[in-house]
Design a protein around this nucleic acid. Structure first.
Lengths: 226, 226
DNA sequence: CCCCATATTCAGATTGTGTTCAGGGGTGTA
DNA sequence: TACACCCCTGAACACAATCTGAATATGGGG
């Protein structure tokens, strides 16, 4: 999952970035409306945290532009306590949730998770696929009840695939959602991670579709032809 | 499905080419208006992605020429954000859809699928023909509910025939839509693929029309005959 | 009954994937 | 600060699926 944070306060921006990375997200940061808008337009984020009081272009305008362009990623807006009216215009502009400053990081994380899973059409923080349990809240994973230790990138990979289970996901899509902006895509890291994941959660859970990508499946629920 | 991409920016061109190939299309690339126009005139594309700001001949002119020549393939134009007025002239010139740069690959793919299926007169990404289900989005195929594993070229063949179900399709047409430019057509690959496809989805679904080509049919719904 | 279009088979060639590993950077601990 | 450890990255190599083109078989139509 890849998140964009647009926040002009340097301290808060840094803190948010760290908190989100700690939670296993790929994070890009912007400190003004213009850069933020450009990034949101260019990169395929899974969610955006958007401050409303921004230099150059204000948050509401940024959000409006995105929505006018058909961007559908969930947006969580941050407002100062005394700018209550902004909340309203925020929702009008297409925000999905808001948080008033100051707030606890915990709360931000919880709301973000909720947005992400809602966007993926799930209703809980965890996903079960034939004995495989992926807990996005705790960033943990179990196979047949036994905890499996995953590194952060392994978990991101699994989590993204679980969110889009059953669908074929191309390497390009995986790279775009697992890494943040600057990543040199011509290497075989994805294959390497898929390999390691398979060793940990079982080879038959990740199906490779030659020429297209990978798909997470329930190995016990594949109607076999022939 | 065979796509032409006319884009002068080398990076973007390469990226688009890869993303489209990842999705299973045959792709030709052109980096200027003149070459692009020539290719569109010469080869039977199923859709074209056309940048408007091009060297030698600009995109709008290219599009106008094609339309004046009676080319009907769907065209998706790419415009820079600040060239909004171009969009209008683009539509006037006969474009079917547009996307402003920068954009997500996923969005381009979605719009392209929409254009392709619209051009073929369908309204969804998947097609059913008497127990045969072809899902162009997931690049999957089912026979009587059972998933059938196809290789990428097998799927392209099936997909093209499904888009034009009921019609007789010549070998030449198949070759032209399944492969990109540089392909040596004097071999019997098509027969080979048809053979393999028949073995996988059932012999009676692909009818041979001697001297003309093949036709995809519903074996349970053949209007008598014979 | 012969000819030609179509089918089938098969063995390289080619391309796409999996695995392994060493070096580097980061993190936590003494 | 130095040390130990873990993870990520990129490259090299091993392996596998798929594609291709040719050789060979089959069958319909004149």
């Amino acid at each position: 999952m890849r998140i964009l944070v647009v926040e002009d306060d340097a301290d808060l921006r840094r803190q948010l970035g760290e908190a989100l990375k700690d939670s296993g997200y790929a994070v890009d940061l912007a400190d003004n409306g213009e850069d933020g808008h450009f990034l949101g337009d260019t990169e395929p984020y899974d969610a955006v945290v958007l401050d409303l009081g921004l230099p150059i272009i204000d948050g509401i305008s940024v959000l409006q532009k995105w929505r006018a362009d058909g961007k559908t990623f969930p947006v969580l807006i941050l407002t100062a306590r005394d700018q209550w009216s902004e909340k309203v215009s925020g929702f009008d502009a297409g925000a999905d949730d808001y948080l008033t400053k100051p707030f606890h990081h915990e709360e931000l994380l919880a709301r973000l998770r909720a947005l992400l899973r809602r966007a993926a059409g799930h209703t809980t923080d965890s996903i079960d696929i034939g004995g495989l349990h992926v807990d996005n809240r705790a960033a943990r994973c179990f196979v047949d009840g036994m905890p499996v230790k995953l590194t952060s990138h392994e978990f991101r990979l699994l989590s993204y695939m679980a969110m889009h289970r059953g669908r074929v996901i191309s390497r390009t899509e995986l790279v775009e959602h697992i890494y943040d902006q600057d990543f040199d895509r011509d290497s075989n890291t994805i294959e390497v991670f898929v390999g390691r994941l398979r060793r940990k959660i079982g080879t038959n859970r990740i199906e490779t579709v030659r020429g297209l990508g990978y798909r997470l499946i329930d190995p016990d629920n594949v109607p076999v032809k022939k």
